[in-house]
Amino acid sequence: MRAENWNKQEFELEGWTVKLTSYQIGQTQVAEVEAVASGAVIARSTDQLREQAEKTALENARKRLLRTRRTDFDLTVGG
């Protein structure tokens, strides 16, 4: 078996750019969500149905991204 039937989308999720990649390995649909800023896959899911795999991966990614806080200091000032 091989990874095939690739699909890639990039969009905003909870204020972060993410890349949703889905593909099929054998009878299993795999979906992965990568946070583009870090290049890290932050959620992965499998299902018999691609839509469900993508939905679950995105839900998990959303939960994780919601926990990422941004600080509020002036970035042009060092120290």
Binding site: A35, A37, R69, T71
Partner: peptide, 19 residues
């Protein structure tokens, strides 16, 4: 080698990963 947002201090960990 972290992301620019981690370097500047905007975030404490890569987006989606534990602080």
């Amino acid at each position: 080698v972290r992301s620019p947002q981690e370097f500047t201090g905007e975030i404490l960990a890569p987006p989606g990963l534990p602080e």
